[in-house]
Computed example of a mutant assay.
Amino acid sequence: MTTLSTLAPHQAQDRLHELTVIDVRTPGEYAGGHIPGALNIPLDQLDRALPDIRSAAERAEILVVCASGARSENACRQLAEKGIHTATLAGGTGAWAAQGNDLDRPVACDVKSAWAMDRQVRLTAGSLVLTGLALGEFVHPAFRLLSAGVAGGLVFSAVTNTCGMAAMLAKLPYNRPRKADLDATLARLRSL
């Protein structure tokens, strides 16, 4: 089992000039505010970016970030399995901002930011539970199984520290990078 390296926000702040920061959130979340200089490579695009990340890791230490630290830990594990050592930011960009550090945000007219993934998951899960309960009350009691299934999924998500619903929502068009955006990010990564 690989031990994950973790940096606290104050440690990352002190070393930001020497780190290559990769933000694995969706493009919409990234647009909502990211660590200055962070490059957006969504978690589901890591395999495509692997050669460039490997090359960057040879030049500088890689710090992987997300909103809370869960997705970045997952990314660090995936990269470690490929022989690339990285570190994760404890508490993610939420902890970074909570300690008074700045977040870069694109000009409002340049990029429309999407809701944070955890907010999208809460809306979807809550909507499915309410739908299952309403249909179970007014159409057929079997629809309550939808609510039970969502509840079971949430428990599984908490126990395993993974989220299948987030993985599905990340595939929606507004959460996916345009090919040109990811290509531009990988070109920046190569030039660091």
Rank of each mutant, 00 (worst) to 15 (best):
V159N: 01
R25K: 12
L43F: 13
A114D: 07
A8R: 07
A180H: 05
M165H: 12
G153S: 08
A184L: 02
A167V: 14
L130K: 06
L89C: 10
C163N: 12
A70C: 00
E58Y: 05
A187M: 05
G28M: 04
A108E: 11
L43T: 10
A38D: 03
L43M: 10
L172W: 00
R15L: 10
T160P: 01
A87F: 00
M168W: 15
P173E: 08
S68Q: 12
L43V: 11
M165Q: 03
D23R: 05
C66T: 12
P173D: 10
R48T: 13
M1G: 15
T160W: 00
L128M: 14
E81H: 06
G91D: 01
G149W: 10
Q45T: 06
A108T: 09
G91W: 00
V111Q: 08
D181R: 06
P42D: 02
D181H: 11
R119C: 04
N101W: 06
D44R: 12
V111Y: 07
G33I: 05
S157F: 11
S147A: 15
P51I: 07
S68F: 02
W96A: 06
Q99M: 14
A60E: 11
D14N: 14
I84Y: 06
M168H: 01
V159H: 05
V24L: 07
H10F: 03
L123T: 14
R122E: 14
E18T: 15
A166S: 15
S113P: 12
S127F: 12
A170C: 08
A8T: 04
T185L: 08
L63D: 01
T162W: 04
L79K: 07
G32R: 04
A80C: 02
L89T: 06
H140R: 12
Q11E: 15
R77C: 03
P9W: 07
G33H: 02
T160Y: 03
F138C: 00
S191E: 09
T86M: 04
G28E: 10
Q120N: 02
Y174H: 13
G92N: 07
D183N: 13
L172I: 01
V111H: 11
G94Q: 13
D118G: 01
R190F: 09
A56C: 07
V21R: 02
G126A: 10
D52R: 07
R178G: 13
R190S: 14
L16K: 03
S127I: 02
G132M: 07
A87H: 00
R54A: 14
R178D: 13
L146E: 02
A49H: 07
R59A: 15
T185K: 04
M168A: 15
C163H: 04
L145S: 09
D118W: 09
L43I: 13
L4M: 14
P106C: 07
F143M: 11
L145T: 09
D102R: 12
L182P: 09
W115Y: 08
L19Y: 03
V129N: 06
L135S: 11
F156G: 12
A134H: 03
G37W: 07
G152A: 14
S147R: 10
L63E: 04
D23S: 11
V159A: 11
E58T: 11
A67M: 03
E58V: 10
V107L: 13
H85W: 00
L186N: 07
E29S: 10
